[in-house]
Amino acid sequence: MGTSTPGGIPADVLPAELLGAMAYGELSAFGRLSADSRFAPTLRDRATFAKIAVGAFGNYALISGRLTEMGRDPEDAMLRFQPSFDHFHERTPPGDWYESVLKAYIIDTVSSDFYRTVSAFLDAGTQQFVRKVASADQATEALRILLMRALRDDPRLASRLALWGRRLVGEALTQVQRVALEHPDLRAVLHDGQAKAEVRRLTAELADHHGRRMTGLGLAA
């Protein structure tokens, strides 16, 4: 018999589905960042976004390769997550370059927190892989620097971006709750009856991490 998670789910199911979500997130980020780079105020900023987009595609390739090694079709693994990701982006179109930068930063950091937290339910190899792909990296720092420079050059942006950030994280955490509670395998790992409490705890933790990052930027979360 194959091994299973504490929720009785076959051990390879949740890793494949988590990686499917991550893969589509990175593929989506590549397209979004590539498109948004056109609105950068300087060629340097455009190059920064393009470099981050290339990094997102590199992450997608790594995750896709991992899924293939697991005997999973990457497209099949991604498809179930496409509607929710696309719906989120349809609901949160940025109004200008600065909102694009903050959106990229919030998605990058909140999703990384979420993936690392969920990976704690999984095998050690998957945890290590997720930490590698979802760790704070040069892209996160580059986005933070872009935001800090924009806020330094025009302090009036702070109030508008703070409001935008609150809307974004509210939408993002709502999406996290929906995926966690509507996903039967994850709900089982969260011990079904305790799932709502666990998801509340998870979203509170994500919100706390986000709030500290926004405070660090001078944007009240």
Score class of each variant (00 low, 15 high):
R80E: 09
Y24E: 08
Q175H: 07
D76S: 15
D12Y: 14
T203N: 00
T203M: 00
L219N: 01
T5M: 12
L67C: 09
R167I: 10
T126W: 10
Y105F: 15
A221F: 03
S111L: 13
M70I: 14
A162L: 00
Q138H: 13
D208A: 14
R178Q: 00
G218I: 00
E141A: 15
A35H: 09
A16Y: 05
I52H: 13
S112E: 11
E141D: 12
A21G: 03
R66N: 07
A139P: 05
A56S: 15
R32Q: 14
D12G: 12
A162E: 00
P93C: 02
L14V: 15
G8A: 08
R46H: 01
I107S: 09
R32K: 13
D185I: 04
L146N: 08
D73E: 07
V133K: 07
A197M: 05
D154A: 14
D45F: 01
R166Q: 13
R91K: 06
A77T: 03
L27F: 11
L161K: 07
Q138C: 07
A158P: 01
L219I: 09
A61Q: 08
R156V: 14
L14P: 08
E26N: 04
G216T: 10
R212Y: 14
G170R: 12
L190S: 06
G7S: 06
E171I: 00
A35T: 12
L157I: 08
L151W: 09
D108P: 04
V110W: 01
R166K: 10
T5P: 04
T3H: 10
L146Y: 04
A180H: 01
M78L: 11
E90W: 10
R144H: 12
S84N: 04
D108S: 13
M70N: 10
P15S: 12
G8V: 03
R72W: 10
V189A: 10
F114I: 00
D76H: 06
F49G: 02
E90H: 07
L206A: 05
Y24H: 14
W97Q: 02
L19W: 06
L102F: 04
Q194F: 07
E198T: 02
L168N: 04
F88G: 02
T92Q: 07
I52C: 10
E182W: 00
T92L: 01
K132Y: 14
A50T: 15
A11F: 04
R149T: 15
M214H: 09
A162P: 00
T117I: 13
L202M: 06
A11G: 09
D45C: 02
